[in-house]
Amino acid sequence: MEDMIQMDRTMSTQQDIKIEAKGVQVYYADNHAIKDVDVNIADKTVTAFIGPSGCGKSTFLRCLNRMNDTIDICRVEGKILLDGEDIYDPKVDPVQLRAKVGMVFQKPNPFPKSIYDNVAYGPKIHGLARNKADLDEIVEQSLRKAALWNEVKDRLNAPGTGMSGGQQQRLCIARAIATAPEVLLMDEPCSALDPIATAQVEELIDELRQSFSVVIVTHSMQQAARVSQKTAFFHLGNLVEFDDTDKIFTNPQDPRTESYISGRIG
């Protein structure tokens, strides 16, 4: 363990670090859900969190943009730094934070509004557009980045809930990138999608790496192998191993990681 942290430290000097988590503990009432996790998330990289269900990977992800604040019984300790600033500092407004750290959820959750309004929602509340033309531009760019523009450009006023599952999820991604975040958190974004839609979203994630730091939680090791450059393996609330994706899948250091990727646990 000691060695691993040491290794991270050395790596962190090499790459541009976006998020730095130090000794993070999460409690749900009396349940200790995340135990002393340290992790560094690099910029312009896809980082995957894998592990068996209930291992804490989603919980940890939700700490990164303080979505756990909405749960009364949840308590977070330790430090999480975004660009060197503690996001749990009392002076930080979670609203501002979440504009920088966007999130895409497990199930597509478009608002019961038109496609246009879904994407425009974030820019509107954060005041990112000076006028209608600006807003149109943001919506178009976001939909293009989400590889959805060509499919929906003729029906921007149709309700977002009327699309297929894969389209809905890409709409949610477009919605998230419309606020111009610096980090994009994705919580099992493909678990409710069919294989074709999954492939589309995965392709998209790879594109997004150009502009953002992406953190993705996934229950599928293949997906992690396909889309990520770095992988973190969580088990029972502990961060067991964190390294380059290739390394994790070919030469895991920890026996638990090995058991998991070879299908013996989880």
Binding site: V95, R98, A99, G102, M103, F105, F111, G122
Partner: peptide
Amino acid sequence: PQAMRDGSFGLGATKSETIRQV
């Protein structure tokens, strides 16, 4: 559904914005 609220919070909306607009 809570997912709808989460979607809005995840974009950095305040509670009242979420309530009024979503």
